[in-house]
Design a protein around this nucleic acid. Structure first.
Length: 270
DNA sequence: GTACTTGTTGAACG
DNA sequence: TCGTTCAACAAGTA
């Protein structure tokens, strides 16, 4: 599932390949994927140049030269693939001249593309997302304040709450808890200062490492070049229920937290 | 055929 | 209004 590191990887690759290029055509194969009318989307996007590609939380933002921005949410199974072949799950195709194409593929059709005025972006994003965990100004003090806002919430669920902290989903929330030796079921208020610091460092470390390895291909994530992310080999708990803990060798437990599968080591995490 | 997977939204509850 | 829980969405895998 694309979370912050996967979206960040795609953002960097999009910047490399299509920033500065003019969009010469749009093919809409699945109209439901657009959150803007097809006619308006095509009218505003075709002919515009892509200035820059940014990321906020798990949202991709393509800023166009004409004052509009295309927002993309990949949700569960969205992919941007450069120069691939269109197939059953291709929803939208961007053309940059006769040879270069970007496909938006989305098997489960949860993802979307939406057109907004660039000047409306702050208003649009305001209040929706908490701090970016990899920004320099996200300090342990800031993280501590975030925890105080939901003292009774379980740690893993809190980490996944986009309004409190941006970009973490079910994979990295579990990995961060494991790395910090903290049980995902611990309430925010029960965390001691040393644990808060360790969890803060773990969040930053796991996200940074995952970006370095090009993200995690647990289900069907692919980067812009159609390649899988290598971080899947380095996962310690996600998707490893009933397997042995890589740290202590005991059998990893699986529970449900907030309706989502959660794996942890009862010996390493307290 | 059934259970299970997930990010976000919106409904419902107290 | 706020915090919280839960169903719904979709389509594929085991």
């Amino acid at each position: 599932m694309p979370e912050l590191p996967e979206v960040e990887t795609i953002k960097r690759q999009l910047n490399k390949e299509i920033a500065g290029k003019k969009i010469t055509g749009i093919g809409v194969l699945t109209e439901k994927t657009l959150r803007t009318s097809k006619a308006e989307f095509i009218k505003k996007v075709v002919g515009a140049k892509i200035k820059t590609v940014e990321r906020r939380a798990k949202l991709l933002i393509m800023n166009l030269s004409n004052g509009y921005s295309v927002l993309t949410h990949l949700k569960m199974t969205g992919q941007y693939v450069y120069d691939g072949e269109a197939y059953k799950h291709t929803r939208v195709v961007f053309s940059f001249g006769p040879k270069v194409k970007i496909m938006f593929n989305d098997m489960r059709r949860f993802g979307y593309l939406k057109l907004v005025k660039t000047s409306d972006l702050p208003k649009f994003l305001e209040g929706e997302y908490g701090p970016e965990p990899l920004e320099k100004n996200f300090t342990v003090q800031k993280f501590s304040e975030v925890l105080k806002r939901r003292p009774n919430m379980k740690t893993k669920q809190l980490l996944m709450e986009q309004k409190l902290i941006a970009g973490m989903g079910n994979i990295y929330a579990q990995e961060a808890c494991f790395m910090a030796h903290v049980l995902p079921t611990r309430s925010a208020k029960s965390l001691k200062p040393a644990e808060i610091k360790k969890l803060y460092e773990s969040i930053r470390k796991v996200m940074t490492e995952a970006i370095k390895y090009g993200g995690t291909s647990a289900e069907n994530y692919l980067n812009l070049y159609g390649k899988q992310g290598d971080f899947v080999k380095r996962l310690k708990v996600y998707g490893r229920g009933k397997e042995r803990c890589r740290r202590c060798g005991s059998i990893l437990k699986t529970i449900k937290l907030g309706g989502r599968g959660t794996v942890y080591c009862a010996k390493c995490q307290r």
